[in-house]
């Protein structure tokens, strides 16, 4: 508890008020110019702030690693058995897919399709979450100096994570697929119907603008359509869990369970160049998740 008393000179108050009023006017009249001015400083400031951020993030990761390895081992035996069963099942799937792959190669050669180059990717680590509660975003430890730019797609071997929205010299902010402000063009893998995938407030995703005549059903997989944005065609976004078809509506929509658990993701791949842009020589990683050294 403390008695307030005046200590700043009257002029300081006036300066503060004048500065704030000036800032308000500048922000409303010249928003782009102010942002452009600050962008010159974003790179160096990002590098300086990145030092304590990366240091604390690595300590945090170390503690989490110790916890997972030595303390949180309850239920590992059951999980192990479950995973063994899953491996058996996946082995069967794998051999089937190899057959399909060989058939596809033969058919592609037969049709003389132009060979598509693999996308170039950069591996990055998640070092934090959005500074506010209003966006679902993650912070990566790679930025402009590693060639990352806004609008690049971010994935894991399992599927789509989100899209880069902001970069500094040494870090970048990725808006997750589950954020309502995010939109990614999607395609239902079985029916080939296109739509737009947006996040929901409940932390899921929703495929919107699906044609009314589409024969989609629960369990259908939604992949990137590759039409616009930083994603090549065919990366898994999620699985349809609920279809919403309303009377008199022009389109139907469907709720998706995202393929990647974005709340727990730790390492990601940033797609620097999509199919068609990259050359095979420049390809540093493939879509199966092998990052460049």
């Amino acid at each position: 508890m403390w008695m307030a008393h005046s200590r700043s000179p009257y002029s300081a108050r006036r300066i503060a008020l004048a500065c704030f009023a000036l800032l308000l006017v500048a922000l409303f009249l010249l928003p782009n110019q102010i942002q452009g001015l600050l962008q010159y400083l974003d790179g160096p400031v990002g590098h300086v702030v990145g030092v304590p951020l990366q240091a604390i993030a690595s300590i945090d990761a170390g503690i989490a690693n110790r916890w997972e390895r030595y303390v949180a081992l309850q239920g590992v035996q059951e999980e192990n058995q479950q995973l063994r069963k899953e491996i058996e099942w996946l082995r069967g799937q794998h051999s089937q897919l190899r057959e399909f792959s060989a058939a596809t190669e033969r058919l592609t050669a037969l049709l003389q399709f132009k060979e598509q180059a693999l996308p170039t990717m950069v591996a990055a680590q998640v070092i934090g979450r959005d500074a506010t509660n209003r966006y679902r975003a993650i912070i990566l430890n790679k930025g402009e100096s590693d060639g990352i730019k806004p609008d690049m797609g971010v994935v894991t071997p399992a599927g789509v994570v989100g899209r880069v929205v902001k970069t500094t010299g040494a870090s970048s902010v990725v808006l997750l697929v589950t954020d309502p402000s995010n939109s990614i063009p999607g395609l239902i893998q079985r029916t080939r119907d296109e739509g737009i995938v947006e996040g929901t407030q409940q932390g899921m995703a929703r495929l919107k603008y699906i044609p009314l005549l589409s024969t989609l059903r629960d369990g259908d997989r939604v992949v990137t359509s590759g039409l616009v944005g930083g994603f090549p065609r065919g990366l898994v976004i999620g699985t349809i869990t609920n279809i919403d078809k309303q009377e008199g509506a022009l389109f139907q929509s469907a709720e998706l369970m995202p393929e990647v658990d974005v709340g727990r993701v730790e390492e990601v791949l940033v797609i620097q160049m999509s199919y068609g842009q990259s050359t095979k020589v420049g390809a540093e990683a493939d879509v199966t998740g092998k990052p460049s050294p």
Binding site: L27, P31, I34, Q35, L38, D42, V45, G46, V49, L53, G128, D130, A131, T132, R134, Y135, A137, I139, V165, K166, T168, S171, V173, L175, D179, S181
Partner: peptide, 8 residues
């Protein structure tokens, strides 16, 4: 710089 939000 570490948020997807608007600067203003």
């Amino acid at each position: 710089l570490f948020s997807a939000g608007e600067l203003w």
